[in-house]
Design a protein around this nucleic acid. Structure first.
Lengths: 157, 157
DNA sequence: TTCAATCTTGACAAAAAAGTAATGATTTGA
DNA sequence: TCAAATCATTACTTTTTTGTCAAGATTGAA
């Protein structure tokens, strides 16, 4: 269970844009330099983010990328789902091994685990906006630990 | 953010073993068939699980694999961490892009998100044992949704 | 003892993900 | 208009992850 390169760098690029003032924009070389990735790679990432409607691009001199909606309105779960093209819905169809259909029919606890994990992650991410990632690490940390705290005190049996 | 093939199949193999009675064991071909994967692949998976101490193996006729400790005492977070060899600790070292060191120094909200996600997943998994995956899907589902429910009512700002 | 069943291990092959490159399209400003 | 700056798109290469194979080691039983 880990975050992919796509997800991480994509998020990072958006955070860069979120730090900009009104009417400011960043070009691909600028984004690439700030994130320490190649311009090509940044281009690909931004293309994805552009298609998904998170950013808008302007070509030509003085062009570049900027957010297409306020950072306060961009929730991380949306971003991640675009960057990950994650198709959790059909999970049991895609992980059937060499068989024609899922050999784990009916009462399969694992399915629940996988689905449950996705829900938990989704839920956590849907409580955080891009805007909240700008600035101090401490704030984000706190947010996560409030969720953590509650979970830890759960008595499951 | 998704579960890897290693993680999923490894877990599944363990669940198979958890359904066995005392003194029963499954051979590689048996495990492979039940999971719909190749015997080779099952062999590799079981090798990992054996090294990690989750299962014990017996060679020769009448051999096979069985759990090395009670399913009630095997928590999913342990299993996943072995199957994923996930090194979250050094995250910012390994995702530095083309630079020598992490370009996202100091106050980087993304680091918190990544760490936070891992903690949340870890926490959820540490509340579930192998034994609880055997049998009905419904039970596991419930477990996850109790966590979910609490999270949803959180007021974050 | 010897053979067949079974796990062990490391090398190899295939597939997926990540990253790069190259060519084309649009825009601005001289 | 035209050239420079900048994004868009697709193809290609590299790396990582998955999966397969084959030769070896151990064990139990006839």
């Amino acid at each position: 269970m880990k975050i992919s390169a796509q997800e991480e760098y994509g998020l990072r690029c958006l955070v860069q844009l979120a730090t900009l003032g009104e009417d400011e924009a960043l070009t691909l070389p600028q984004i690439a330099e700030r994130e320490g990735i190649s311009t090509s790679n940044a281009g690909k990432l931004m293309w994805t983010l552009n298609n998904a409607g998170f950013v808008k691009s302007t070509r030509g001199a003085k062009g570049g990328y900027s957010l297409d909606r306020p950072a306060e309105e961009i929730y991380l779960n949306e971003v991640i789902s675009v960057l990950d093209k994650d198709e959790i819905k059909g999970h049991c169809d895609s992980y059937t091994g060499v068989q024609d259909s899922c050999v784990h029919t009916g009462d399969c606890g694992i399915r629940s685990v996988i689905m449950g994990l996705h829900e938990i992650v989704e839920n956590a991410l849907s409580n955080i906006t891009l805007a909240q990632l700008v600035g101090t690490e401490k704030k984000v940390d706190e947010r996560f630990h409030r969720i953590q705290g509650l979970q830890s005190t759960l008595e499951l049996n």
